[in-house]
Computed example of a mutant assay.
Amino acid sequence: MTSMPASERLGSHIKRAEQALNATKTAVLRPAGLTVAQYAALLHLSDNPGISAAALARLCGVTPPTMNTVLKNLQDRALIERTPHEWHRNVLETRLTDEGRVVMADADARAVRVERALAAEFTDEERETLTRLLGRCVGLLEKERP
């Protein structure tokens, strides 16, 4: 017997919610031809053109090697282009291509439908409370990290 039942572990509930969100987004992004990780990269690239792979990895919450794989797949599909930085030749700047913007717009419309449906399950006050509570979780867990 464990010292704390699974039903009382907040981490289990957070993980289940994350898994359900990822599974739903995976299903709605499939017709756009993107994975959730690829969509996240395109989303952040649309807001941060020219960003480096390392900075993009941090924004997406993945390791740099994982992001390099994601970017290689997006580049192979001609959805992004990577060019050397003007002053730092060993840094590649990453930008969406025209085709990448088209795919991103389609994928984003699909993902936003999921986000809106999720948000609609809560009142404005509940959404604000949930956002604040999750922020507290993140703050505590980031402080506790070894």
Results as ranks from 00 to 15, higher is better:
123 T>K: 09
46 S>M: 04
69 T>F: 06
105 A>G: 11
61 G>Q: 03
35 T>V: 06
97 T>E: 04
43 L>M: 02
102 V>N: 00
72 K>P: 03
137 C>V: 15
77 R>Y: 00
41 A>F: 06
2 T>E: 06
142 E>H: 11
37 A>H: 06
105 A>I: 08
131 T>D: 13
130 L>N: 04
26 T>I: 03
62 V>A: 04
82 R>N: 07
119 A>G: 07
65 P>V: 11
2 T>G: 08
34 L>E: 03
114 V>R: 01
74 L>Y: 01
41 A>V: 04
134 L>H: 05
142 E>N: 10
8 E>P: 01
1 M>Y: 12
64 P>Y: 06
33 G>T: 03
5 P>L: 11
61 G>F: 04
79 L>G: 02
133 L>K: 10
123 T>D: 13
106 D>V: 12
111 A>E: 08
142 E>Y: 14
21 L>R: 08
98 D>I: 01
138 V>S: 14
42 L>W: 03
15 K>D: 10
6 A>S: 14
11 G>M: 09
61 G>D: 01
88 H>R: 12
38 Q>C: 00
28 V>R: 10
19 Q>G: 02
74 L>R: 03
59 L>W: 05
82 R>Y: 00
96 L>H: 01
67 M>P: 05
128 E>H: 09
24 T>E: 13
37 A>D: 03
20 A>I: 00
51 I>L: 15
15 K>T: 11
76 D>S: 08
104 M>R: 02
19 Q>M: 10
104 M>D: 02
37 A>G: 04
91 V>A: 07
90 N>P: 07
99 E>V: 00
14 I>Y: 13
126 E>A: 10
14 I>D: 10
136 R>D: 15
70 V>F: 03
146 P>Q: 10
97 T>M: 00
42 L>H: 02
4 M>N: 14
37 A>S: 12
49 P>K: 05
87 W>T: 09
131 T>P: 05
50 G>R: 00
21 L>I: 06
145 R>A: 15
46 S>W: 07
49 P>A: 08
56 L>N: 05
30 R>Y: 04
82 R>G: 01
73 N>H: 11
129 T>S: 08
60 C>L: 00
15 K>H: 14
91 V>Y: 01
122 F>H: 12
136 R>T: 14
20 A>H: 11
39 Y>G: 00
9 R>L: 14
3 S>T: 13
34 L>Y: 02
91 V>M: 05
105 A>W: 09
60 C>P: 00
15 K>R: 13
66 T>Q: 06
138 V>C: 12
101 R>S: 08
138 V>L: 14
129 T>C: 10
119 A>T: 04
30 R>A: 13
67 M>C: 06
142 E>C: 05
141 L>W: 15
117 A>W: 10
15 K>A: 14
58 R>G: 00
